[in-house]
Simulated scan of single mutants.
Amino acid sequence: YFCNTGQDITDINESGLEMLGYFGKERPRLNLHDIFYSEGELETFFKSMQRDGYVKDFECEFKRKDGTLINVLLSATAIRDETGNIVSCEGIAKDLTKVKTMMEQLAASEKMASVGQMAAGVAHEINTPLGIILGYAQLMMDDFDEDSEPYQNLLVIERQTKASRKIVADLLKFSRQTGSARENLNINEVLTDVIAVTEHNLHLDHIQVHMDLADNLPPVVGDAEKLRQVFVNLINNAHHAMEKQGKGDIFITSWFDADKKQVVAEVRDTGHGIPADVQARIFDPFFTTKPVGKGTGLGLSVSYGIIQDHGGNIEVESPVIDKKTGEKISGTAFRILLPEAKDPKTIQED
């Protein structure tokens, strides 16, 4: 879009109009005050333009025609006249709403996985003694008359023990992930979606993404949302491994192993690698090498469970051996191996 010094939009492309909720031949007269939801964000935007002459990757909220809000990433550059005065500006806005929604869903999934792991531990540690208490209480009830005080006391113990077991069962039911819809998927589409979510944050730390996706891959049967969670976690781990370097590369590759009839997707980084003694524990729940508060230690264990549930496997290699030269390359490679869909038309639900 282009706007003048009065903040009037003088020109905007079709994509911009559609993003704001205007379709067809609608050509409304818009002002930035009409589009920006927050006056504070608009003021920050103007100050940056006046001070620096540009704005880069400014996150803000726009208001659409129907009043709904969208999250956008805004970059703009001032246009000056011969005397150096700002006469207008041109800007590019990217809709981040879907990206933010996906990230929130993934964060919620990881939190639920954490609750699930803790609930499983609670069930194991509490259900066993509760079962013993319940069993002995019921055995002792046979030794007393129903009208006696000891029998009534044991009845209270039985009732409260059953109530406690129900609380644990409800917690497990709440935290356990429900059945997921399975459908035929192209793993390349899943990888492309994930890169769209993560690439911006990677670029902020000067990490470049290189994609080499094989054409005509056979489909796999799976849950797209859960597989996206797996790959986002792998890419976030790769990002963390290269944060302190100030730069790095992530290589996303896919291919089909005809011998094993498996679709393979690899995420490789150029970080510091994983020590051999740590590799054996990386899939253990709550194991993490990140500082306190930076990770739950559940990401890889949850990812491992998801891939196992899809009939696949995860392989890790660190350092990475170059297949062409046989030399060791600094970094880590995670490979996701998923079986080829036997029936291309199969869609099932667990």
Rank of each mutant, 00 (worst) to 15 (best):
F286G: 01
E317I: 05
I126Y: 09
L32W: 12
E149L: 11
F334D: 11
K247R: 11
I167R: 10
I307H: 03
T253A: 04
E39K: 10
I252C: 05
E317C: 13
V292S: 12
G293E: 04
K173H: 10
D66L: 01
L130P: 02
G312E: 13
M49S: 05
Q348V: 10
L30S: 09
A137D: 08
D143P: 00
A224G: 01
G6M: 08
V292A: 15
L155A: 13
F287M: 06
Q177Y: 13
S48G: 05
L171Q: 08
E39T: 07
G131Y: 08
N71P: 00
V267D: 02
V221L: 14
A238F: 04
L74W: 09
E90C: 11
D277G: 03
V320A: 03
F45I: 06
T10G: 09
K25Q: 11
K98N: 13
A78S: 14
K342S: 15
N85C: 04
L234G: 02
F58K: 00
T68K: 14
G326L: 03
V220S: 06
D145I: 01
V264F: 06
E26H: 02
H239V: 00
E225R: 06
I306Y: 03
I157R: 02
S330N: 07
K345Y: 07
N188A: 01
L337H: 10
E146N: 03
N216T: 04
E146F: 03
I235F: 02
R159G: 03
K65V: 02
G6Y: 08
A181D: 13
G295T: 04
L69C: 04
R182I: 08
I314V: 10
L155M: 09
A137W: 05
M49G: 03
F23Y: 15
